[in-house]
Write a protein that binds this DNA or RNA. Sequence first.
DNA 1: TGCTGTGAACATGTTCACAGCT
DNA 2: AGCTGTGAACATGTTCACAGCA
Lengths: 252, 252
Amino acid sequence: MATGRTHRPATRSRGIPEATVARLPLYLRALTALSERSVPTVSSEELAAAAGVNSAKLRKDFSYLGSYGTRGVGYDVEYLVYQISRELGLTQDWPVVIVGIGNLGAALANYGGFASRGFRVAALIDADPAMAGKPVAGIPVQHTDDLEKIIDENGVSIGVIATPAGAAQPVCDRLVAAGVTSILNFAPTVLSVPDGVDVRKVDLSIELQILAFHEQRKAGEEAEAQAGATAPAERENNGKGPDGDVPAVMPA
Amino acid sequence: MATGRTHRPATRSRGIPEATVARLPLYLRALTALSERSVPTVSSEELAAAAGVNSAKLRKDFSYLGSYGTRGVGYDVEYLVYQISRELGLTQDWPVVIVGIGNLGAALANYGGFASRGFRVAALIDADPAMAGKPVAGIPVQHTDDLEKIIDENGVSIGVIATPAGAAQPVCDRLVAAGVTSILNFAPTVLSVPDGVDVRKVDLSIELQILAFHEQRKAGEEAEAQAGATAPAERENNGKGPDGDVPAVMPA
DNA sequence: TGCTGTGAACATGTTCACAGCT
DNA sequence: AGCTGTGAACATGTTCACAGCA
């Protein structure tokens, strides 16, 4: 998914699996909480529980970063916090712009989790002239016209798109043209970007739909269990044919 | 993640891979757009492009649902829309509650993508008495005290948590106790739930951190390419110790 | 003794390439 | 001829189980 690029050929492996990268922030959060409670060391078992994964996975994940633990003891909390932060690139400052300051954009601007992790909201951008100058989360909203200038002056390489679906691709194109190489997209659209640009998508309704799928399956299992005995081999219809039950057409 | 549970032991397979389930909403969205433009059929190639995946994957995904295409022709748009909707459980109505009506909760309440997919926001719930009665997205906010009653009266099985991190687990417990079996969690916490309850997590800052990782890697590769020669085998620093920069503090 | 670190077995997911139907 | 549907090869991710170090 839009992510990988050329492998690191020379030097050492440095190939941290994508699945591991996705869990590092989780570990980091758990470790930060321990750090605040001044806990000096944790075992893989304890930390795994706090992060909601199993300990074998956690140890394997950490093994990709290096040998940061001590056998018979566990991991030094502060040291691990530092190593993971560095690995994730959080020891540097990442200026971020948020484009589209509606409900969601405002929520993102106010979200504390960004600032505390090295992300700095450098600017808020919206297409509505009425918004211009209005402060959101203490930051004045700027107009889309100045997008390129803003990106350039702040050295922004990460952009967040929280516009309506229709505006997302044009905004994306402008961000990329202005030099942004990583995009977090909240608009319900597939963005197309040139090679070398990473896109991650967060889609609220997709998550709900996945839940609905499992929810439905639970209900089905109950019914099945009640009915006793062998379930009726799944709606037979399946043989194909635009017949079957039910006409067609979606809600909308 | 948090999703799977006991495998279906008996009966027939009906095992749609999790990865496929996660893509069905994507296909559905692309198909709905085609449907609106009254396009009667699509090839796997076209649909795959619209959904941002490759065509082999799409065909494999559909093959788990059944043989819904026509060789030499493609897929009937309306028919597929219906089949996927049914598979995802979207042909039925899913009442949903949103707990925590801050910026994010309000954004969710206003989000059009829910209503258009069979999800109905049955209630908005917040702990702040000052919010009670205030309408958000046309729906009056109710107080947390009535949570159980609301769940019960509306037959809610899906809950969305958009509270601050600290409130998430208690809210989750109450939702589960009241009968909710699927939870979409926006709070930056690991929720623990009993068996049989599904949790999906959407974490804004985690996504940014993953982007930062790749962004950093890009920068590193450039530098390396410029500098030529072997990279300086990992910052030696930090022989352990509570030095480091390391910010700290949890989101909120 | 008690933990980490990791090879090896297993499970899941993706891609290829082509047989088979329309 | 043109497309779907799918076995088989491959790639990635997870879990097991234990060797090896503190």
